[in-house]
């Protein structure tokens, strides 16, 4: 563009601008490379990738979509945390507060909920496509293992989040699920060959009590907002790193 104003030229020539934007934007080979190489976020990509990696019929784009949904969950989740107190007295009231009083509160909660459901669905589809294209075969075996770990973490995230609204739906769904945990062999009080009573078993450890109460809510909350997301992010970093190193699978 020729008719740039003097002001624009001055800005682009200034030390401040140059310290932030390290290269030009003209469509040149060099800039296309620098655009990726000199940006910490875009640097997750290689500078070039093979043609077939662009084909949606091959990739289904499900891994990327899952990651994007995770970001949606982080953002909507952070906003929800402003309005939520993890106590049995307050939690449900906060749900009503979100529904009736908080501006855009219901959209916020809806988005968090639906993106979570969608995320599990897209992970499963991602796993299916990675299986069907044999992309877990050498040298990518370990990244499949990381992927299964991420699936488990996502399921645990959904599971812990499910209790937080503290309504009948969450209370009884978590009751069903934690009763199953109490049926673990050896370490659950209702399981076969049980060694422990209901006050010392694995279910007690998870709930922080023999019943679902304020301790359980707090434990699920802390797992949901800190422990599991951070663990997930660490595994995601490894997952993406290994995709970057091994490249997308292609026929030999």
């Amino acid at each position: 563009m020729e008719n740039k104003s003097a002001l624009w030229r001055w800005i682009k020539g200034s030390r401040v601008y140059k310290s932030i934007f390290r290269h030009g934007y003209e469509d040149t080979k060099k800039n296309r490379i620098l655009q990726i190489r000199s940006n910490v976020f875009l640097h997750i990509h290689p500078v070039k990738i093979p043609d077939h990696a662009y084909r949606i019929r091959f990739t289904w784009c499900m891994g990327g979509i899952t990651f994007f949904l995770f970001l949606v969950e982080v953002m909507t989740g952070a906003f929800l945390m402003f309005y939520y107190t993890p106590t049995p007295e307050q939690a449900y009231r906060d749900m009503l507060y979100l529904r009736y009083d908080v501006p855009f509160g219901m959209i916020l909660r809806n988005m968090h909920r639906w993106a979570a459901h969608l995320m599990i669905f897209t992970i499963i589809l991602h796993m299916l496509r990675v299986f069907l294209t044999g992309s877990y075969k050498p040298p990518r075996e370990f990244n499949w293992v990381i992927g299964v770990t991420l699936l488990v973490i996502t399921l645990l995230l959904s599971f812990t989040g499910y209790l937080l609204p503290w309504d009948q739906l969450s209370y009884w769904a978590i009751t069903v699920a934690t009763n199953m945990i109490g049926a673990m062999p050896f370490i659950g009080h209702e399981g076969p060959l049980s060694l422990l009573d209901r006050y010392h078993d694995i279910r007690f450890l998870i709930l922080g009590g023999s019943e679902i109460g304020s301790n359980a809510l707090l434990r699920f909350y802390v797992m949901h907002i800190i422990v599991l997301p951070v663990t997930g992010m660490i595994f995601m970093a490894v997952h993406f790193w290994r995709v970057r190193k091994d490249g997308i699978s292609r026929p030999l």
């Binding site: 049995p88 449900y92 749900m95 009503l96 529904r99 219901m106 959209i107 909660r109 809806n110 988005m111 968090h112 909920r113 639906w114 609204p165 503290w166 309504d167 009948q168 739906l169 969450s170 209370y171």
Partner: peptide
């Protein structure tokens, strides 16, 4: 989706 469908919320846990 979030505008059209509300996340479920039943009575308070009992």
């Amino acid at each position: 989706w979030a505008l059209l469908v509300n996340a479920p919320l039943l009575e308070v846990a009992n």
